[in-house]
Structure formats: C-alpha cells, structure tokens
Amino acid sequence: MTRHEVPTDPFATIAARAGAADRAERDLSDDIRLLFDCGVMQRLCDCATGPSVARGVDLLCRLGAANLSVGRLAEGHVNALRLIRLYGAAEQIARAEHAAAQAQLFGVWGADGPRPVRIDRTADGQAVLAGAKRFCSGLGLVRHAVVTARSARGVQLVLIRADDERRHDTAQWRTAGMRATLSGGHDMEGLRGEALGQADDYMREPYFEGGIWRYAALHAGALEALADALGRHIRDPSPMQAARLVEMIRLTRGARLWVEHAANAVENSPAPDITASLLAREAVEEACLRGIALCERAFGTAAFMDGNPVERIRRDLAFFLRQANLDGKTQLAARLILDGRATQ
C-alpha cells in the first residue's frame, strides 16, 4: 500500500480485517504498514509524553477498539522507541529513528523462557546472548527488539535484530486470545546485540510501571467496542437490557477518565505519579471484566459464536487483561499509597 492509497479511516479498516487475522487467514503486516503510512504510528510516539498525551490516549483507545492485537504491537513499538530515546546513545537513537521512519517495527521482549536470557560475553563491543525469550509479540513483523538480559551488574537492555525466522518458535503460541499477535519463543543463543543504557535502567520509574497507562488505554478501547456492539444489538430495550446498556456506557466513560488521568499524572506532570497508572490499570480491569459479563448476558450464546465480533473482542480482552504480574502491581500500588500517607 502506498501513501496515496491510505484509507480515510484506518481504524475502521483495521477493525474490518480483525476477524480474518484472528482466524489466521491473514497476518497483521498490512495493518502495521497502514499505521506507518497514515502517520498514526508516528503520532503515537510523539504523543506518548508531554502536553499532547491526551491525544495519545485517544489514539490508543481507538486502536484497542479496532483490534487489540494490532494495538499490542503498536504499543510495543512506542515502548521500544521510548526506551531507546531514554537510555540509548545519540548514534543508537538516530539509527532507531531512521529505521522507524522506514516503517520498521520495534518491540520490547522481557519474558524469559526456561533458559533466561543472559549476556554470555562481549565481542567486538557487542553483547553476545544466551538463553531464550517467550511471549515475544509480533514474530515475523518486529524487525528490531529491545530485550532484557541478565548480567553481572543487573538486568541489561540489549537492542537486537529480531527478523531471523530460524530463531522463531510460533508453535508456543496456543492461546484463547490475542492469537493474531503471532507471539512465541525466540532463541537468543549466540545472538549479538547492542547494550542500551546501564544495568537496571529498564525498571527505572516513572517509565516502567508508570507506562501501564498505555496498554490500559488499549483495554479501555476494547471495552468501548463492546459497548458499541451492545448499543447496536439493543433495538427496543427491555428494562434489563436498558440497565445493561446504561451501566456499560458508564463503565466506558469511567475507564477512559482513569486512563486520561494516569497519562497526565505520569507524562505531563513535574512530579510523575506512577500510583495513578497502577490504579488506572486496576479500575480499567474491573470495568472490562464487568463489561464482558454484561455483554455475555445481553447477547447470550451469540457472544460465544465464531464469527461474531463480540466473541473475538471479549476473548482477546480477557486474555490481555491477564498480563502481567497483576498481584505484584496491586501490592506495589498499596505500598505507594501507604508510603505516601506516612510522609504526609
């Protein structure tokens, strides 16, 4: 697709193709290319921080409503470039920006397999890795990945080329939801990459847990898609259906407000508040789980039928909500709240 062929509503185009991608009748390459061609990917990166972050929230919500799998890959691209801009050397940043301008997709892969990734040695100024990653989103689509690797000094970020299909293991990805992300394992044995920043930069706040608002925005967008589907389904509402619709709209409005608040508190504040992001994740998860239950009750068995967009959206959303370390995030939020009270 050329820039002259970009549709007027890229989100509608992505949504229309989501079912086929979920059924593995096509991959997400056209959708990712569309995001680059129409400028959405660049705007997502530009609006990830600062006074324009409200625009970033809206774009992520719209992308989550269109297709959560595409949104997951786009958010990974934003996260990767953010890490490179934060911790990379000037030359690394320049090369990454150039690659992104050429529509090359970036990702962040942090989940280790049974053999955790580590820096085995250095050679010619590069880190030589050992081990394997799992849950690597976008295998075959992601060209460059920022990965975590254990080292003697702590967890080191390493920038690698990720497009060697001989290292990919998509057979690992047998899930009920988010199938179209083409995730799986990646063998890092002997792979060379560039160290990015210093050890343990990856966990530095407000950029680690503070960034949760971005995928919470995707979740909120999927909830809005369910609300739209419910509104189309209810033609002459009974009292019960009317009550479900009203509650659903209230949930969507509340979820978006939580995400907008968190994004501003983290990205557009002189004193970034990661607690806001953690609490937004909790609130959005609760709203989404309730929204899924309302749709299942309102649609009945139709909500579980192949080919019904509601079936795919609820399945993708339920799966995405379970990533990652949810109890740890709740405990961290509680500790931050209590620590804040203790210092007041």
Rank of each mutant, 00 (worst) to 15 (best):
A302F: 00
G76A: 01
A265N: 09
P309C: 07
A324C: 04
R232H: 12
P7W: 04
A287K: 03
R43Y: 01
G197E: 14
L83P: 02
L279Q: 15
D163M: 10
R322Q: 15
C47V: 01
L141T: 10
A342L: 10
P114H: 13
A280G: 04
E25C: 06
A48D: 13
T170F: 00
A271Q: 14
A276V: 07
R150D: 09
P239L: 11
W258S: 15
I93K: 15
L223I: 05
A24I: 04
V147W: 06
R134F: 02
L289R: 13
A180S: 14
T2V: 07
G154V: 02
L191I: 15
A90C: 09
F320I: 02
E165F: 04
A242S: 15
D112P: 02
F299E: 00
T343N: 07
G254Y: 03
Q241D: 15
V78C: 11
G210N: 10
R85I: 02
P116K: 15
G221C: 12
R150I: 05
R143M: 06
F106G: 13
D273Q: 14
R115Y: 07
E267W: 00
A130R: 12
L230V: 00
L191D: 02
L223D: 03
E209I: 07
P272A: 11
R43N: 04
E285C: 04
Q104R: 15
P237V: 01
R179K: 14
G328R: 14
R315N: 05
V158L: 10
D187I: 02
A24E: 13
H168C: 09
G107R: 10
A303L: 03
L338T: 10
A12T: 11
Q92P: 06
L68I: 00
Q198M: 13
V53L: 11
G56H: 08
E165N: 03
I84Y: 05
M305K: 10
